[in-house]
């Protein structure tokens, strides 16, 4: 056991650096995913004609294909069109685009779960549809979406490990590197796994606290109710 711990201490600095990269990737991807996902959800819910169709096509294409394929198209494929993107931005873009489709569906689900009477009451007060969406629908939808959205946070942190396939030095890639020095694959993977479990538990706790903090009566839900 003591040997194991000494081993962990020796590899920890390298893994820590990888973890930081993983967290940065997931933060970048989540922000990008939110920025694209919310407009997509609005376009799919309230848009008409071509706007709605584009949103549906975007969301369903992304959700219908594996993230690795998306990553490979962006990192290996786009240079064919003269678009060269570095590893880390490529990973963030691929993860972010992937996340945007799922986030869009979470937002859409939340928007659609809001009783139609809310929109009606807002319009009856004289609000335009835009005002109603902004002041009445979205503030509620963003609260409702928090539990499933926080699951997306956890997914993203885990899925950053895919970036290892294009040699981004995140946690998994560091682990593989250490394996090639030490020839102790199981030990290294065990500690990598432990780090993921601990980090994700901490993130889950933080998310729960945030939810508690901003919860208002009538909007209590829990992350565990969504899977």
């Amino acid at each position: 056991m003591r040997e194991q711990i000494a081993f962990f201490v020796s590899i920890f600095p390298a893994l820590w650096e990888g973890l930081i990269v993983s967290l940065k990737l997931s933060a970048g991807a989540l922000i990008l995913g939110f920025t694209i996902g919310l407009p997509m959800a609005l376009a799919r819910t309230y848009g008409k004609g071509i706007v709605k169709k584009i949103a549906i096509a975007y969301i369903e294409t992304i959700r219908g294909t594996p993230m690795v394929v998306q990553l490979f198209i962006i990192y290996f494929g786009l240079p064919d069109l003269g678009i060269l993107i570095d590893r880390i931005p490529a990973a963030i873009i691929a993860l972010g685009i992937n996340s945007s489709a799922y986030q869009a569906e979470y937002f859409r689900g939340a928007i659609q779960s809001i009783d139609s009477g809310q929109m009606m009451a807002a319009e009856a007060l004289g609000m335009t549809k835009k005002q109603a969406v902004r002041h009445i629908i979205l503030p509620q939808a963003l609260r409702i979406v928090l539990p499933p959205w926080s699951n997306e946070v956890i997914y993203m942190v885990k899925y950053t490990s895919v970036a290892f396939l294009i040699a981004v030095p995140e946690l998994m890639a560091r682990g593989k590197m250490i394996i090639s020095w030490t020839f102790k694959p199981l030990e290294v993977l065990f500690w990598v796994g432990v780090i993921y479990v601990i980090v994700l538990s901490i993130i889950a706790k933080i998310v729960d606290l945030v939810e508690l903090k901003i919860s208002i009566p009538g909007f209590q839900m829990s992350r565990e109710d969504h899977y």
């Binding site: 009606m120 007060l125 004289g126 609000m127 009445i136 609260r143």
Partner: peptide, 29 residues
Amino acid sequence: SIVRQKIGMVFQEFNLFNHLTALQNVAIG
């Protein structure tokens, strides 16, 4: 919008805005 501002409506299911306090519900219009 202008017509609706002058015609108030009260619904069977209340339709209060769930994310706002009573005071904010009244003030938002």
